[in-house]
């Protein structure tokens, strides 16, 4: 199947145009984060700062404990992911390969949860978390997200595809449920697990509403909330510092995905995500 020359050129042009259009806001972010305050007070389109103000980053550290926020964010993201995997893998296994009464109904409960994100039932969840005494704790930031209907659904689809022959082989070896999961299902479902994990990390690095409601203290605040608070204080006052803080909040997650790009793209494209 040959592409006509003009067709190729046109397609590449469209792609490049879109790519650049989407990247431009980020370039603007980078450039502003490195400018001096005086440079942004005139409405001009200058991309390269006169002097690179690396000190902007030191300055935001002075104004708010961003490293602490980052630590909190990492704890919360990792915590959520680990518990999610602990809960989701056995559940998906049960739905994919075991039988028991009421399976359909219970599975439906998991699937419906996909459509009911925490944000939509924030009021009662806040009340429950309050009753549990988990306001202003990292545990309170983690627990409401650990039962993932999405993860259960995704992994179940993948687990189902593992051929029965492998299960038989495992049985002959005398393996039980757990060994079978650990040694057969998990290795064979790596792309899905990796994909789910990375989506989970990206999602919860993003969380804003829930931490906004249940945290007051700097010692439990996450990056997004720290940024939101910083903004309330600074907004309009100094775009350079604001953009430096914004960059600080999104740089780690972007760096993480860039560093793992090959694994991520490969896993994503081969995982069972397409539904």
């Amino acid at each position: 199947m040959e592409e006509k020359k003009y067709e190729t050129v046109l397609k590449i042009f469209i792609l490049q145009f879109a790519a650049i259009a989407v990247i431009l806001p980020f370039v603007w972010l980078l450039s502003t984060a490195l400018k001096s305050p005086g440079e942004v007070f005139t409405p001009t389109l200058k991309l390269i700062p006169d002097t690179f103000m690396w000190s902007n980053f030191l300055e935001i550290m002075d104004r708010a404990p961003f490293w602490l926020y980052m630590l909190n964010t990492i704890i919360v993201c990792v915590g959520i992911l680990l518990i999610q995997l602990l809960l989701v893998i056995p559940a998906a296994y049960a739905f994919a390969r075991l039988d028991f009464p009421g399976k359909d109904v219970i599975f439906l409960l998991f699937v419906i949860q996909i459509m009911l994100p925490l944000e939509s039932i924030i009021i009662p969840n806040y009340l429950i978390t309050k009753k549990l005494g988990l306001l202003n704790t990292r545990t309170g930031l983690i627990l409401p997200f650990v039962a993932s209907g999405f993860g259960t659904f995704m992994l179940r689809q993948t687990f189902k595809q593992v051929p029965n022959a492998l299960e038989d082989a495992a049985l002959i070896d005398g393996a039980g449920h757990l060994r079978f999961i650990w040694h057969v299902l998990i290795p064979l479902s790596r792309p899905t697990i990796v994909t789910f994990s990375m989506i989970s990390i990206a999602t919860h690095w993003n969380d804003y509403f829930w931490p906004l409601i249940i945290t007051d203290m700097d010692r439990v605040r996450t990056l997004t909330i720290g940024l939101g608070m910083f903004v309330q204080q600074e907004s309009g006052s100094d775009w350079t510092l604001l953009m430096a803080a914004t960059l600080f909040v999104c740089a780690p997650i972007i760096a993480f995905f860039l560093a793992t790009q090959k694994t991520f793209i490969k896993s994503f494209l081969t995982s069972g995500i397409k539904g």
Binding site: R179, W182, H183
Partner: peptide
């Protein structure tokens, strides 16, 4: 279980 262990099992752990 031998056939399955080397395939990523260790790095996962």
């Amino acid at each position: 279980m031998k056939p399955f262990i080397p395939k990523g099992g260790i790095s996962m752990r």
